[in-house]
């Protein structure tokens, strides 16, 4: 047995994601990152997810796990963290879950800088319900609810997180596995709201409709179009074209997290420790 396998509920496996889906890669990256952080144990870590393909992951992971309602993972996670600050709380969400129905909770979670690590599995589509457009479906891409190509301008969730106050913001992909693990690992060790966008391929509901080829081709697309942040910053604007996109660490800051801030309230009010 490989060491990270203990983090899975083996009686719940095999998972029910479609063959070629990238979600399993990110789920594995999360537990590998957890394994590298001695402060995170199976008993003191809670995995919270929303609703959607990504959010199935919580059921496969052997921790206290919470599969919430659509879009609501961050408020639930906030409650857990503030009620028991000694627990580590990881949120698994998707592009629809996090930036559409949960958009308000997402930006306010960032604003409060609650000590959560939020991993957004971005498959650019509502996968579970069969391929409807999400707020992160790129312009022109087809979805069942955008049969002529999406005309809704998409969110850049990383820019959104940074602007809203998250203190760790990064992006990686299912292709760049080692980078992805390291990115999540750094997010886990940041005390504050950490946001990681993990691009995943959805060959079934997204790739097929947009003629992106098989899972391997979709991952090759990630390899060919992802540009490390350091290189991206040196790239002249006329080279930032086509489908090229930056990955890596976008923002990191040392700021007081919400629990520490609320501890000040308790101190001022003259209250007992939790």
């Amino acid at each position: 047995m490989r060491s990270y396998e203990k983090f899975f509920r083996r009686n719940r496996l095999p998972h029910r994601w479609f063959p070629g889906c990238g979600n399993g890669i990110v789920m594995k990256a999360i537990v590998q990152a957890i394994e590298k952080n001695p402060a995170f144990t199976q008993d003191n870590t809670v995995i919270v997810s929303g609703i959607g393909c990504s959010s199935r992951a919580s059921g496969y992971m052997d921790f206290d796990t919470l599969h919430t309602a659509h879009g609501r993972a961050i408020p639930f996670a906030t409650g857990i963290k503030l009620a028991r600050p000694e627990l580590n709380v990881v949120v698994i969400t998707g592009d629809g879950d996090c930036t559409a129905i949960g958009g308000n909770h997402f930006i306010h979670g960032c604003r409060r800088n609650v000590d959560l690590t939020v991993v957004l599995f971005n498959n650019n589509i509502y996968g579970m319900t069969g391929g409807q457009a999400s707020p992160m479906t790129p312009l022109g891409k087809k979805a069942t609810t955008a049969p002529y190509g999406s005309v809704d301008r998409p969110f850049d969730a990383c820019k959104l997180a940074e602007a809203a106050g998250a203190t760790y913001v990064a992006r990686s992909t299912a292709f760049h596995v080692q980078h992805l693990v390291k990115t999540i690992e750094d997010g886990l060790s940041n005390r504050g709201f950490s946001f990681i966008e993990a691009l995943v391929q959805c060959p079934t509901a997204y790739g097929r409709r947009n003629k992106m080829g098989d899972p391997a081709k979709m991952m090759a697309w990630m390899r060919d179009n992802a540009v490390m942040k350091t290189a991206w910053d040196k790239l002249p604007d006329d080279k930032k074209i086509g489908e090229k996109f930056p990955i890596g660490l976008f923002y990191r800051a040392q700021e007081q997290d919400y629990d520490a801030a609320y501890q000040q309230v308790i101190d001022i009010a003259g209250g007992a420790a939790k």
Binding site: V46, L66, I74, P75, F76, G79, I80, L82, H105, H108
Partner: peptide
């Protein structure tokens, strides 16, 4: 909605 979510999370954590 978030108000409900946050109290449910806290309740699950024992409060």
């Amino acid at each position: 909605i978030a108000s409900m979510g946050v109290v449910l999370g806290a309740s699950l954590a024992g409060r």
